[in-house]
Design a protein around this nucleic acid. Structure first.
Lengths: 138, 138
DNA sequence: TTGTACTGTAATAATATAAATTACAGTATG
DNA sequence: CATACTGTAATTTATATTATTACAGTACAA
């Protein structure tokens, strides 16, 4: 998880959940996050592929949640944006002639998977709705 | 955790633990990880500051564990290399005029802290010794 | 007492990754 | 059919990571 895709996706979903049923444009969302609208559209495209968002093209188009916020788990968002593993991929190519180097990537992968499961288990008990409820009406 | 400092530090410590009491040079360690020796020395310097490693300068110098491997927790290693937060820092600067944008970084930070605690709790129950035991003698 | 093999660390260069920007075809609406 | 959007590709720019160079300092051993 080396970039800010998780916070961006969560921000998008939070905006949509805070005004459920209303279509929001990528420009409007980008204005709230303060990033480029194209990045927002990319993340929306990704969230759509993962079944959390629906979007409508054309004039007055935009994005909206495809399900109630209390049926969207934070673990789903994590899965949707996850590319590399948690603590940094084992992208090193250790020396295969070293008994440690030869085996370490496998053991690192096992460790990461174990940690990731712990994290996902936690996130699977939190809904988007829980997250949005924390926001005060200001 | 956006770089590979955790795997590098764990690799260094694994090498030292696999041959406890013996001084290993940064060149030798770098050869196993297959990275630049200066990076290894930087990580060793960091691990030394965090009390996990001792090192000796000069000819025949090198690094060694400062405690038995069963007294080094993986959570300590995590702490030693940790810079940014888990899922990507809230480095975005959302629009303060948006009710969601204004509050989201605080809620993201809270969420990250909660997740990080779960992770650290898991890592605090794993020792370097446990990790090294997995390696087969080849 | 001096050559050698190391550490420690700063400064810089190279590379990889992420983010912003530009561009434009496609779509729905009024 | 003009307008306001989405969708997506291509490119540029910015930022972060990693490698490299350089060199002073230290300990050992002949």
């Amino acid at each position: 998880m080396n970039n800010s895709r998780f916070p961006i996706s969560l921000h998008i979903l939070t905006l949509l959940a805070s005004d459920e049923g209303v279509l929001k444009s990528s420009d409007h969302i980008a204005g709230s996050i303060n990033i480029n609208p194209v990045l927002v559209r990319k993340e929306i495209s990704n969230l759509r592929k993962h079944g959390m968002i629906e979007s409508k093209e054309g004039k007055n188009g935009g994005a909206t949640l495809s399900r109630p916020a209390n049926q969207i788990l934070l673990s789903e968002i994590y899965h949707a944006v996850q590319q590399s593993s948690l603590l940094g991929n084992s992208k090193n190519k250790p020396n295969p002639n070293c008994p440690i180097g030869r085996q370490i990537n496998q053991h690192l992968d096992d460790l990461y998977n174990e940690l990731e499961n712990v994290l996902l288990n936690k996130l699977a008990h939190m809904t988007l709705s829980d997250f949005v409820k924390q926001f005060e009406n200001q």
